[in-house]
């Protein structure tokens, strides 16, 4: 049996609003995934370390503080440094449309803004896993 999809839901930076992150965590759990929730105020280094130790398929990061252009590229680079470039990196929170191309260039696979239906996030992850998940992402290089 394939193990359940493991997702790290992380909340970096200084903002203290994790309602959105918790809603997403709950929705992913209800979709049969194992969700590791880190809590507030995580540094990029700690998020990367948690992704290593928990051997996750997906890292989902919520940023409301406006620091997404700093935090997300650092997390993406940290994952690459650990050899976790196959891990799916997703972003959520308040992220202006004009910043999305820069985030994607940095290694964020998709950005889900406010009002996103959680079903869309579940579908995105499941679709990525069906295509082979981290294994296939690595093999494609």
């Amino acid at each position: 049996m394939r193990r359940p999809i493991r997702v790290l839901v992380a909340k970096p930076g200084l903002d203290s609003h994790d309602r959105g992150a918790k809603v997403v965590a709950r929705a992913l759990r209800d979709a049969g995934m194992e969700v590791i929730y880190t809590g507030l105020h995580q540094t990029p280094a700690r998020i990367v370390e948690a992704a290593v130790q928990e051997d996750v398929d997906v890292v989902a990061v919520s940023v409301l503080s406006g620091a997404h252009l700093t935090l997300l590229p650092r997390i993406a680079a940290g994952l690459r440094d650990e050899g976790l470039d196959g891990v799916l990196l997703l972003a959520g929170g308040i992220i202006p449309d004009e910043d999305v191309p820069a985030l994607k260039a940095a290694g964020v696979a998709a950005v889900f803004g406010p009002g996103t239906n959680t079903d869309a996030i579940v579908a995105f992850i499941k679709n990525w896993m069906e295509k082979g998940g981290a294994d296939a992402a690595r093999d494609r290089g």
């Binding site: 759990r29 209800d30 995934m33 540094t43």
Partner: peptide, 22 residues
Amino acid sequence: PSSPFTGGALLGDRIRLDGDAP
């Protein structure tokens, strides 16, 4: 615990870890 219905789980024990650097 895993949910007996969906197999999903919410694992929140890392929340109690602290410190900035791993």
